[in-house]
Design a protein around this nucleic acid. Structure first.
Lengths: 302, 302
DNA sequence: TCAATAGTGTCTATTAGACAGTATACC
DNA sequence: GGTATACTGTCTAATAGACACTATTGA
């Protein structure tokens, strides 16, 4: 694909050029990956009849080193010089969850100077979705400093400013991360600017309590992406076991979207994404529920 | 937000730690931005009655240096050590198009080792959409090596493989970039793997003629994103002048989506994204058309 | 028996697709 | 007058929302 015969201004062929190319000449930032590892877990049942409530959980690591020592951060690490970014993400994921074959997707690359006090660090964020029943080792066992936090997300304020040719909408979003160990909070301001025939979004941290770096913005971004893609992809199935009930699946949608859905409409909507099995739940304290599995061909069937 | 009193294992406070932190200790990749600058341009009218055809165009730069000397590449450059990635993208955009206030969006970060033969380069791709009538300097004037190419995109082959718990769908996509100077082609393989309850996509270059680096993959990715977002955002309005006819707008949709739309349905769909004006086109060789402008409040009106 | 969930039928409102039909300037 | 586009009305099909109603288990 490359061209090996043409010479440049110095009269070098591509081969010669590459030989004399001095890598150290240019200043370079560090590149890291940061992982948003999400799962859905069941809470304790209130009583023998009720179904367990489902909660969205995020995996965080307590920092044992500067900077942000003692605060909680997304798992992540440096991208190796001979490692692809995806490979670095998969490596981090594996080291935290001990599962392969997880749904994983690149989200966004964050690179404001000053986002890491050590040096210039550019971070590529990834979202991974895990079926919590498949977690072989629970976070917290091997790594005493890793823990799942319940992820809460709420729009607390909206403020609109009229502009000459459009407007600006500022939303304050409160993120709360809760478990037995700690409660972390952050407020992220998402600004939507509609001007000159186009809409632009920007995010900044207003306040961050106990969350390291700019990780709160990454969390806000991730949940928005998750909510969006839930509606038109098969992403939800990464969060449930191989066999699941439709009510379970519905609750996954509900906890992510933050609103209740009507069972009839929901079932119609996901009808061709699932295949029924002959199996049913038992000992439920109420009518048993049929178990379904994911239909990998849902996009190609009517 | 950071914590300045806690000491780490070496007994250092955060301030002390940062003082002794040696930046040069770690191997680091170079980071660049690559810009997909797209616009829609009118072709010559066939005769006085007919409307001009619209074409999707991409701005490319002819490389005067190794590697890939003589081939065409996306405009781009290194991210400065004290510059945000967005700022680098805006800088590149401004230097090529000489307009600010353009719609711009980060697409994806590409970082396979070996994607640049010089050294490890991680590239963050951005898409920018430009109204061609607002281009003050046409590419090709100041930079003799910059040129607009017509962007053609076609699925040429689909191949499906059944897997144990799912399937794999490989699509071969042919990209063609055409202008008076050159015709560049590339084939990109997009693989959709549905396995274990989740779908994953990957892209690779099968063949690239005259297009530098892995830029053909970035192009393929960009056009997919553009097509998707066209349907549920106001992105199309970045590609038309302030005043436009509905037929013009429809043709923008058609050329991007690669299919014809029905006028009645189209007008219904975008009805609340536009505001009518009192103005009409003139000297059209047929019935005049009403001019519209973008409605920045379309999301908040019924 | 009854609490709690499982699952379906149907009415209505909204939206998308198809297409026919009317309107109008400019050469 | 005829060509090419502008624009609307309406029928139909598909989809989403609402809600009532029936079914079934385990303590």
């Amino acid at each position: 694909m490359s061209n090996s015969t043409i010479k440049d201004k110095q009269g070098l062929t591509e081969e010669q050029f590459l030989e004399q190319y001095d890598v150290s000449k240019y200043d370079r930032p560090s590149v890291t990956v940061d992982m948003l590892i999400l799962t859905i877990m069941d809470e304790e049942k209130e009583n023998y009849r009720k179904l367990p409530e489902k909660k969205l959980k995020l995996l965080l690591i307590k920092r044992g080193e500067h900077p942000y020592i003692g605060q909680w951060a997304l798992p992540g690490g440096f991208v190796g010089v001979n490692e692809s970014i995806d490979a670095a993400a998969i490596r981090e994921l594996k080291s935290e969850t001990n599962i392969d074959n997880i749904y994983m997707e690149q989200l966004y690359t964050w690179g404001d100077p000053g986002r890491d006090p050590r040096t210039r660090v550019i971070s590529c964020s990834y979202m991974a979705l895990v079926d919590s029943t498949a977690l072989k080792i629970k976070a917290g066992d091997d790594a005493a400093d890793a823990a799942w936090f319940e992820f809460k997300y709420k729009i607390v304020q909206e403020h609109r400013t009229e502009l000459e040719k459009g407007h600006q909408l500022e939303r304050l979003i409160k993120i709360e991360l809760v478990n037995e160990l700690a409660t972390l909070t952050a407020t992220v301001k998402v600004t939507e600017t509609v001007k000159n025939r186009s809409t632009r979004y920007s995010r900044e941290i207003v306040d961050s309590q106990g969350i390291a770096f700019d990780h709160a913005v990454m969390m806000e971004y991730a949940i928005e992406r998750l909510r969006n893609k839930l509606e038109y992809t098969d992403l939800a199935f990464s969060l449930v076991p191989e066999l699941f009930t439709l009510t379970e699946l519905q609750k996954v949608y509900e906890v992510i979207l933050g609103k209740e859905l009507l069972a009839a409409a929901f079932r119609r909507k996901i009808a061709n994404m699932v295949i029924e099995t002959e199996q049913y739940t038992r000992d439920a304290g109420h009518r048993p529920s049929q178990l379904f599995r994911f239909n990998p061909n849902w996009r190609y069937e009517k």
